[in-house]
Amino acid sequence: MAQRIDVKDLNVYYGSFLAVEDVQMSIEARSVTAFIGPSGCGKSTFLRTLNRMHEMIRGARVEGTVELNGRDLYSKDIDPVAVRRTIGMVFQRPNPFPTMSIFDNVAAGLRLNGQKDKKVLAETVEKSLRGANLWNEVKDRLNKPGAGLSGGQQQRLCIARAIAVKPQVLLMDEPCSALDPISTMAIEDLVNELKSDYTIVIVTHNMQQAARVSDRTAFFNLAATGKPGKLVEVDDTTKIFSNPTEKATEDYISGRFG
């Protein structure tokens, strides 16, 4: 299920503004890759190029390639909607559909893809909620509103919704930033479990979190406000946090940044 991503010569534009410049990196299958760096350096922008979510902003475009197991996701014959089905996304703040039940939240993507079989829907919803470590907490109230769950439960519900359509990659944009420490720990434990089945990319401002959950870490930076974000280095997480190659990475991790 999980697949590798290879990014080559990627530049991201908003109109004429170059937001992220010349990214080249590989994201290994069945692993967690963390993006760290200061605010405004292009981490989330780059993350959104991996499933073409950035295209929802007018004027956004890319140059270069993003390949999923060797196939360029920006080829003219590729449907962006199909890309987003293959590469799911979990956002910074939990966003369950407010008018839908817990069950319907998880089943939403399946129904959108034309699945009507009630047995298949029920089995997939249960499997997805179990995969998100939420089933035991909600199995007796599946018809209750998803928005009635706690913040941490809502985020796990959104993860269940994302994995219900069987993606190959999960993108997570600061998934714990709005959560308390206990809910954050639950999400981190879940990420460690999910990587056996998915390729996971997580943007985080919490360097301790990156050190705890990721196998590889990419440090992004920018020379000055108004300049494009750049990938400074990417390596095994243990090396990035103990012996980075670039001084800028060491300064950022040690708190001497800026």
Rank of each mutant, 00 (worst) to 15 (best):
G109M: 01
I182W: 05
L121Y: 00
N133R: 15
L129E: 00
M172W: 04
Q154T: 01
R212Q: 12
Q208Y: 14
V203G: 02
K144V: 15
V120K: 15
M185V: 14
S150Q: 05
A164M: 02
A178G: 04
N206E: 13
T124C: 05
A162S: 13
V120D: 15
Q168D: 12
Y198W: 12
V120Q: 15
V201F: 05
R161D: 02
W135V: 05
T86C: 15
E174N: 01
D180Q: 13
L134G: 01
K116E: 11
I182A: 10
G131R: 00
V106Q: 00
F97C: 13
A107Q: 00
Q115Y: 13
F91V: 03
L112T: 10
R130L: 04
A82I: 14
K119D: 13
I200G: 03
A108T: 08
T199L: 14
S183N: 08
L170N: 03
P181G: 03
L129I: 03
H205E: 07
L149H: 03
R111L: 10
T184S: 11
C176S: 13
E126C: 10
P96G: 02
P96A: 02
D173K: 04
S196F: 14
M89E: 01
L121R: 00
A178I: 05
V203M: 07
P145K: 06
V169F: 02
Q153E: 07
C176K: 04
D180M: 07
S177Y: 07
D117S: 12
Q155W: 02
Q209I: 08
L170T: 01
S177I: 01
C176F: 04
V83L: 14
I102G: 01
P96E: 00
A186C: 07
N113P: 06
G151K: 09
D189E: 11
S183D: 05
G88C: 10
V81K: 14
W135G: 08
T99N: 13
Y198A: 08
V106E: 00
E123W: 08
Q208M: 14
F103H: 11
V138L: 00
Y198D: 09
V83K: 11
L142W: 03
K118H: 09
V201Q: 01
V90S: 05
P96N: 02
F91N: 05
L110N: 01
E174D: 03
W135A: 06
A132V: 04
